[in-house]
Design a protein around this nucleic acid. Structure first.
Lengths: 351, 351
DNA sequence: CCACATCTTGTTATCGATAACAAGCACGGA
DNA sequence: TCCGTGCTTGTTATCGATAACAAGATGTGG
């Protein structure tokens, strides 16, 4: 292959004399070593003479060499990239988890590819996973707290190590989850401990496992205390749906305590209650979930269950990298505890 | 190269008899055509006989073939990937823009690589861009509304088409921005039109261009109306910083109208005012920026300036793809208009 | 009926890195 | 002194796709 004259020290030219981004071979030539040695230096191989290493690094610097990841991937079979599947909602938890995953991955030297599932349906999730698959990600984090036990998803998860955050456990994928049952129990027991005869619940959509987990914890806490289990209300996580639920609850005189499955819905509910003339927490206590940034600042400051999103994201990445290193390891599950944060939206039962 | 016996119709084996994921050559062999023809079918080349195309697609299906992106990139020099640089904050605007970019990119057939800058410093941003560069992204969207005119950033932007959302214009990068001056003007004029003698302002940090733009618009509106320009307060976008600003403002009797540079800070300020016994909007009108989901549901419902995050993300991607197609095109800038949303946190001046 | 354009398909070289293997060298013990 | 061991570096083959070129088949107008 004719290389053309190498006229400048900082710019290689191709056969047609056009500028070309320098390759490892260019660095090797410049440093007077082989390409393999350059490769060794750049990937931190131990057995390289310090003098050689310095020379190579100097050439890298001088030529402004940057490694071509496509070539490295093709050759080594490793992309050092993981994929994240998220839902198209702009909510606090999703953003927090995505950031957590990105930073944990970066610390481990992995890049992150993001793919949004257009809906929570298994088909859409499988499509998002397929897009990541085509990018040859080495692992996938599903930030998709919905039941995903379909064949399509399972097929991909069998081939690509997959960790689900707050999702359902399948044959092939690992789950790292906040213990949502515990979330429901914590919130409910807090309200019961304040003397409320029973606790109402505004749940999220049934497809979300968080929803069902929290509802189960709520129900169990009530039953353990021998209390009546009131009918369940449902929202879709939006403040508006919480508002609609609040319009109902506010008309029920015996409702004095509500556990709402998210902070955003909780504030929606509080607004509706307020409009109906029912005061929070004097007339009705409200507990939310997430501990969003505004929880302490909107009025009343919201009692809520904080979820350690950063921790769980880091844990998910840790599990994922372990499975990437040893694909034969059987998938495991881990649960992380949530924490009740008591503020001003809950008060003792006032008769 | 010995291929080994191909015993199964669905699983190719390598020379050692181990399972191997099928390559284009395997599909070609299975369909009785050349690899090039498979390539043509899969990349939608028009000149392929329908019968051949069907046969290839059937083989693709049967073998479960998935394209190896690393190989395609290496060979074609195109990765069909764009990078997004975001800041490590979990705020509404960042998440909304990131989602918008991802969905616009996906529609255009591009994958998205995400890279978090550990801080808003130019060095951290340059580092994030370098990581993306190594991934061979074809373009970068900087979701980084801070002044970034350093050499490092500029050097990378000169090589990789770069579009900044709400950031500073440099020699080499394009900017797509919401007109922040207009945001400040809209909010301030709304408050003035309610009869308030003047309008106070809680700005974001100075490094953020949004901050300075909004503050400039605020100041200009006051000056155009011939009003006194009160001293500027500063927050850091967090609700807590808004709360601190509110503690100050609430003690200033002549402050009857405040324009706060974000909804989250606005709610923080409102809480402080509330604690000081100053009612919103009766005693003090407040306007925020962003129109977050909770804006209409926390109390009082917040008058705010809505920013079209989805639109701007789509526009940014559009510009970016245009520059990827034609790198010689000179970088341009576009501004998008924001919109005032009037709710209940603002009221006429009461004397 | 021939020359030429067009459609369809195949062949070969190449992208830029790494793995596997090999070779040269220094060093220490028998 | 000789040989094996370990360190350092180089050589060659290869990853899986696409670009560029080539060639046979088909059709079309003069």
């Amino acid at each position: 292959m004719a290389k053309g004259h190498q006229m400048s020290t900082t710019r290689r030219l191709d056969a047609n004399g056009r500028a070309r981004t320098p390759s490892m071979a260019d660095v090797a030539a410049h440093a007077g070593v082989s390409a393999q040695t350059v490769s060794r230096v750049l990937s931190g191989h131990p057995n390289v003479q310090p003098a050689t290493r310095d020379r190579v690094l100097a050439s890298v610097d001088e030529l402004g060499y940057r490694m071509n990841n496509a070539a490295r991937s093709l050759s080594s079979g490793r992309t050092r990239t993981i994929g994240v599947v998220v839902l198209p909602t702009v909510d606090y938890s999703g953003a927090a988890v995505t950031h957590g995953v990105e930073s944990a991955a970066r610390r481990a030297g992995y890049a992150v590819n993001i793919s949004t599932a257009s809906s929570p349906d298994p088909a859409a999730i499988a499509a998002a996973m397929t897009r990541l698959d085509r990018q040859s990600v080495e692992g996938i984090v599903l930030v998709v707290p919905v039941a995903t036990g379909t064949d399509e998803v399972e097929t991909i998860a069998r081939r690509i190590p997959t960790v689900t955050i707050d999702g359902s456990r399948t044959m092939s994928s690992e789950v790292v989850a906040i213990d949502q049952f515990e979330v429901g129990r914590l919130a409910t027991e807090h309200l019961l401990s304040l003397g409320h005869p029973t606790v109402w619940h505004v749940a999220g959509p049934d497809e979300w496992l968080d929803s069902t987990g929290r509802a189960a914890g709520w129900r169990a806490a009530l039953e353990a205390a021998g209390r009546e289990v009131p009918p369940l209300l449902h929202g879709d996580w939006s403040p508006e749906s919480g508002y609609q639920a609040g319009l109902l609850l506010g008309r029920i005189p015996e409702a004095t305590a509500v556990f709402v499955a998210s902070d955003e819905m909780a504030f929606g509910a509080i607004r509706a209650l307020h409009e109906l003339g029912r005061r929070v927490p004097e007339d009705l206590s409200v507990v939310g979930v997430d501990d969003i940034a505004l929880a302490a600042y909107c009025s009343p400051a919201l009692t809520t269950v904080a979820q350690p999103f950063g921790d769980i994201a880091a844990l998910a990445v840790e599990h994922l990298l372990r499975r990437i290193d040893d694909p034969t390891a059987p998938p495991a599950s881990t649960e992380v505890a949530a924490q009740l944060v008591i503020r001003s939206s809950t008060a003792p039962y006032a008769g």
